[in-house]
Design a protein around this nucleic acid. Structure first.
Lengths: 342, 342
DNA sequence: CTGTTAGCGCGTTCAC
DNA sequence: GTGAACGCGCTAACAG
């Protein structure tokens, strides 16, 4: 069997002694075919290991069964879990996923999207897009040509669907929790390149204003917030800052930073949570692995992903854009406690 | 500008007053075009936001600029880092990645691959495939029709390229290290569904035979080794086993398990490394985040990924299959030390 | 330099 | 029930 090249529908038709139309019908089962010929065709398909060429099919049905997913990177397990949710929700509908990592580079994000569009994906999910300036119009135009869903995106753009967490409320909830525990000197740790951080900072600022004013030295930016070195750079920064500011609690915009915070405390000989409380955000698997187990806001990433997938598919099927807002819940574990009695 | 639908090459040609061939030429820049007409065409392309349809292009060039990647899942950062390596290496060649998570389900792995093939990927990278029985022939046939690269795959199949780590030597190195530290009662922790585990177990068994015989109770299988609950299930198992067996060291087949092992020790009130040493395998970012920092064998996942990508592209360009074996190096950190003086 | 034409592999009318 | 013919969007000869 010298079948180096892939068999086409023509090969099958010839070998089965029928027309390509008939083969097409048995493959797609959308028109009646006499049982006998159907079986004959199927036999040939088996023998030739014929697999329909999806590209060709979709070229003339003007459809596409692949979806695009754009993430900043895979180093934060947050994204892995979201993608899991997307995959699961999308598998039954026969879609495949074209993945693109933007590495927090707006340029790469845009060229990555171009690549997806040119590959004719029928929709795109953008996770934690980092948008600024010119790019807003880029997305506005994109949205008019192809279904778009943003996960945790905060610039309103017509025609795009959103799945977001109520990160304002979530952040406030975490802050309230800390305050109920008696904390006042609360450090705020964020990173670059994501609107989520800015949203949270807003809440923090307002909260501080209400509680005796904001000390901007308590605002810490550690740079890249989703990389392999995020925990480490958070630790480094905090190592410098904690002795000066002497906070009793640290709120971190994601769990990676929180891990760094915990490690910084350990290094400085401060016990968590006896001396300092640490609260994270996301609830990635990692937060259950470290010691002490991290108290954090659960973003339910799987839901984030599967909801985004549903929204996208709905949009592809002609529905209109929507917005889904998920609530975050506090997961009390071991890293936060009552303020130390100084 | 009522351009609901995507513009095609014909639209551009008409609007620019040239033939489709000319448009094609300026897009691909593979034939000379008079500067003036080139500029006119480019203007129209801009105005119409024309993006070439890659599907159509590849249909008649009989090429494809997408690659398939199959992973067991994304929950172990190991895979994230490998994918990173692939992406980086492949970006400059203009390839996109179709991602497929098999969840350790052989059925899903195979159907996922079918989806990739039908989408006409020009090659597939399989990471840590778990192969058994019938499936070997499945891959053998697949390999004859499409370039295939296995990362950490250990069944030899003609025509497929391999990038592997020398996990035998790596495991032996880790064991030697432990033994040099005086350890004899070494627990071996593995999981299901990966040949890597079995390779390592082999080495462990032989090593034990050489050192006074194997006690099979020291062989621990914790089930799923790459899931979100892997660290936890490792901990649970070890919680039961450590008190009985009283090991002085634990060798874990990956870092997730090692984290579980460390946590089990902590819970049992055994200090790491004073009472028990723990060594992992992989060197994922997580291993630097936990306390004590994990001593582990570095697999250099990025290299794994970028080498696989190179091999695949080489194969696509008509080269023949190869095998690359990377060496693993021990990263001494804080989780292993001299055996306790009992 | 540029236009015309013939497919790429497939689904889909429209006849028979 | 089945086949012939057209077209999806594009590239690759082949003419001019």
């Amino acid at each position: 069997m010298e079948d180096r090249k892939k068999a086409t529908i023509v090969d099958v038709a010839r070998q089965a002694g029928v027309s390509v139309a008939t083969v097409s019908r048995v493959v797609n089962g959308n028109y009646p075919v006499k049982l006998e010929t159907k079986e004959r065709v199927q036999k040939v398909i088996q023998a030739l290991r014929y697999v329909p060429n999806v590209q060709a099919r979709e070229l003339n049905t003007r459809q596409s069964s692949t979806l695009g997913v754009v993430v900043p990177g895979l180093h934060n397990m947050f994204f892995a879990e979201v993608i899991d949710g997307i995959e699961e929700a999308v598998r039954q509908d026969g879609f495949s996923l074209l993945l693109n990592c933007a590495k927090n580079d707006p340029q790469q994000e845009m060229s990555g999207i171009q690549a997806l569009v040119s590959r004719n994906v029928s929709g795109i999910i953008l996770i934690s897009p980092n948008m600024a300036g010119i790019r807003e119009s880029f997305y506005a135009e994109l949205a008019r040509r192809i279904p778009l869903v943003f996960i945790n995106g905060y610039h309103h753009i017509p025609d795009v669907s959103y799945v977001t967490n109520d990160e304002q409320r979530g952040t406030q909830q975490a802050l309230d929790y800390l305050e109920r525990l008696g904390h006042q000197r609360i450090l705020f740790v964020r990173g670059d390149h994501s609107d989520s951080y800015t949203i949270k900072e807003e809440v923090y600022r307002r909260d501080r204003e209400r509680h005796g004013g904001l000390d901007s030295r308590f605002l810490i930016n550690i740079g890249e917030g989703n990389g392999p070195e995020t925990a480490d750079s958070a630790m480094q920064q905090l190592l410098r800052v904690i002795p000066d500011l002497d906070p009793t609690a640290i709120f971190c915009c994601n769990d990676l930073m929180a891990v760094g915070a915990i490690n910084a405390c350990k290094r400085l000989g401060r016990r968590v949570p006896a001396d300092i409380s640490v609260v994270g955000y996301d609830n990635i698997a990692l937060s259950r692995m470290i010691e002490p187990k991290l108290t954090t806001m659960d973003q339910n990433m799987f839901q984030l992903g599967s909801n985004a997938a549903s929204l996208l598919i709905e949009r592809i099927r002609g529905g209109c854009s929507k917005r889904i807002v998920l609530e975050n819940v506090l997961v009390e574990r071991e890293s936060a406690g009552k303020v130390r009695s100084s």
